[in-house]
Design a protein around this nucleic acid. Structure first.
Lengths: 209, 209, 209, 209
DNA sequence: CATGAATGAGTTTTCATTCAT
DNA sequence: TATGAATGAAAACTCATTCAT
């Protein structure tokens, strides 16, 4: 029994191990630029073993997306359901992503960039998940137009898109790799605050708008 | 003379032809996901000919970046040099990119996404060009802090990054391909205005900030 | 253990198999004139497998050289260290090469001709090995000047070079392929003797020199 | 008329120019390792022009061989016909080749090595020319057995082969490229003398043989 | 489960040769 | 003649995937 339990635990462990390795490898070289063997080596396993846990290379990427994108979506959905000000909701959403990046920068980068930007993205079930997130953000902005917190002339969908763009540029690609990896420990929090602040009030002094 | 002129023009023409084809192909399938043969077929030429005009596949991508990124940089530099309000500058910059996308969406997408987001980006001369643009935007925000148009607590570099993120998400990847390609001919202009508007005043109603 | 041993032996076996096939193929068509696929077919394996055992095509040639040139060098070094007459040493050296050719004519040809005569030879570590052999032969001739067996006016280095030339022409290229492959089983031995004989006493009758 | 003459002269000139360039290029990188374009560039011409003067790449190599091998063959034939001692004949033959190398090292190297050692050598008319030279040398040694200058136990064909090997190793490949290209202006002559000397009397002191 | 040998389709790149100008 | 654009066969090399052990 102990053995069986250990084995089944081992199965999940191995799978996690491979996903973690894939995250590192994909973040480093991109999906197409990475080899299955790279992932196995990063995990300290043989590359043949990868096919015991995943159908193929693409399934690894999909697993990474599907097992993590839902978390983001849940945060958006939940924070909206729980109510509160727009500022609060933006703070929670941006805070979650920034914190996620702090914990697992590679994972955030891969999920946000590698999947979303993949040329095959549109052909996949992932598209629906991405649209769901967008819709979630859009719903928030739309709702707060009714509360008077958001200006009438704001297009909720555009606002959602622009918010996503800010978070994406911040947490993926060059900026995250170089800019955020600085010595300044407050930089990440200031960046998060900047996103919220820009979304809410832009950069202009109140009277000059 | 006419002949010589025609010949040398022909050389440039063919090169342009290949770059245009590469733009289409890279936009469709990504750099790594595209074959040199695809570019040639798109151009209606043989794949061997590609190597008369470019050292290798990567040189095509670099040419696309280097011959176009400078244009964006020039717009940022010039508009800042010519003075005016921050709003004006943001309108010009966002307007230029939106117009560029309208004219050549594939080119904008490839240059902004395929090169800048490439994992090999950091190893290349391209990095310097990217940093230059970021510095140009940063200079604008920094300057307008001295004019009182930008709040004191705004980090110019972060503002530059977030602006870039908004433009990038809008003009590349999924959003541009699906959202902007709608029937609504005003959408593109409204998107541009939204970027300027969010950067300047966010989405909140003035008093509620 | 048996399994592990078998496996590791299998790895070496396959590698040998490929080297043997490469020897045949290179001897037939030259290094540049042979395709990796030819080697694989000669070995009865797929060409992809070649790259499991060797970095690339050139590495195969280098392996052939490095794993065999040392044997020749050892014979020269050892026979000199063990002392004896110059005649004896030349007989051993020439005898070794002739015997090697008898056993594996392709291998001798490839190592002596394909590597040594390659235009890229000078750029490689192989050069040092070649010079070592030349130095070994030179040392022998130099030594036997001190014993009085070699004339004072003989340049040891030149003698070494000329000896090498005789052996090379005999065992490589056209001569070996056509002349030595005759019905006469004594031809090979007579050739070896001729090299020794010419080096020692030339072809002239003693008094007529 | 002047024009026509100039043109026809120009044709031969161009052909020579290309052959000279091909010699340099083939000596540097080998036949298979050289490109038609390399030859054209070395000659300062366009590569398309090469095909006005030669059927194809191989025809260039054959022209080099056929237009020069005959010279060597003629020297051997003539010196034998004119009579004299074996020493004299060897001196003339070796002297001719050494002098040829001094004048045009690349040409000697290409003709002796690139053609003779080519894997396709056997399939070609060149084989006959090579065998003719060998026969010529063999005839000399055979003849001087009848004059008593050559020992009875000497195999004329083997002697011819070994002589060829000495000359070949000396004037081609590594030795010529590195050893003979030294500062010592007497080295070349001493090498020639060494070949003659070794062929005639070997290296041993007369009594010790 | 685990390993890595084996396969071969797929890609990049090279380059001899042709041919329109 | 002279040029070099154009072609495409050919070759090196990669790597996802399979499968025997």
């Amino acid at each position: 029994m102990a053995k069986a339990k250990k084995d089944s635990a081992s199965y999940e462990d191995r799978r996690r191990q491979l996903l973690r390795a894939a995250t590192v490898v994909f973040a480093r070289g991109g999906y197409l630029g990475s080899r299955v063997g790279d992932i196995a080596r990063e995990a300290g396993l043989s590359y043949g073993l990868v096919y015991h846990y995943f159908e193929n290379k693409e399934a690894i990427l999909n697993a990474l997306f599907q097992e993590n994108w839902g978390l983001v979506l849940k945060v958006v959905t939940d924070v909206h359901a729980q109510g509160g000000t727009l500022r609060h909701k933006l703070e929670v959403i941006a805070g979650f992503l920034v914190e996620a990046w702090r914990q697992q920068p590679d994972l955030v980068e891969v999920v946000m960039l590698e999947v979303v930007r993949s040329p095959k993205f549109l052909e996949k079930a992932n598209l629906a998940a991405f649209l769901e997130l967008l819709a979630g953000l859009e719903a928030i902005f739309a709702h707060h137009k009714t509360t008077g917190e958001v200006r009438d002339d704001v297009d909720p969908k555009l606002a959602a898109i622009l918010l996503l763009g800010q978070l994406e540029v911040l947490l993926t690609g060059f900026v995250a790799r170089q800019f955020l990896n600085s010595d300044d420990p407050t930089l990440l929090d200031r960046s998060r605050d900047a996103v919220v602040s820009v979304m809410l009030g832009g950069v202009a002094v109140p009277s000059s708008t």
